[in-house]
Amino acid sequence: MMRKFYGTELSNGLMLGTAQYPSPAILADAFERSGAAVATVSLRRESGKDKAGQDFWEMIQRLGVRVLPNTAGCHTVKEAVTTAHMAREIFGTKWIKLEVIGEEDLLHPDVFGLVEAARILSEDGFEVFPYCTEDLVVADRLLNVGCEVLMPWGAPIGSGQGLNNLFGLRALRAHFSDVPLVIDAGLGLPSHAAQAMELGFDAVLLNTAVAKAGSPALMAEAFGLAVKAGQMAALADPMEKRDMAAPSTPVIGKAFLT
């Protein structure tokens, strides 16, 4: 059973970003072939002014998937809150992916600013998807201020490294077994996405791995299949690892070959 995101059930666990594609036509193709359930859109403040980005947003809305606006590139609480308000007005949705960046080289979330911005936005009726780390205490604080979904990173944004801290992510999954969790950022290959889903995460969010591939649409389809495979595997209750071999046929009584 897939956990619901603020009461909404998604058709699958793939969320795809909309930046950095060679063209909007290729972007649309990637969405179609991946079957992604959600499109994230980052709002540049300047495009919000006078709705100058209208053409692009209308194109995103025509994709026919659920839109999750994103406060990408915001470095302060105030900036993130302002961007969230602009996004709500433009896209007519309470959903907001909240990014408050605290460090430039790893684009590490500023977890203190994040909790503060999440509190302000939750109180204001937003349904916040916070981009966080695997830190259990930060996760707890985010839930306390009203978040009902968490988006821990797999690895730094755009790095393509996959799941960097497996132990931490497993702990997070085990600790918050009722909370929908989305692996956001750092995925480079479909196998990374499958692994996240196998660990029991509810969705993955990625952008660069598809947009910067030589054939974005083909890579998008590969991610769509990987997410599906991982999701099925998680439902199928995978076997446990063990240290010794376990023969799949009985050994005792078997005829010896001479």
Binding site: S47, D50, A52, Q54
Partner: peptide, 11 residues
């Protein structure tokens, strides 16, 4: 390269 048709000024 910004998906925006407006803006008289650079940011």
């Amino acid at each position: 390269m910004i998906e925006s048709s407006g803006g008289k000024y650079a940011t």
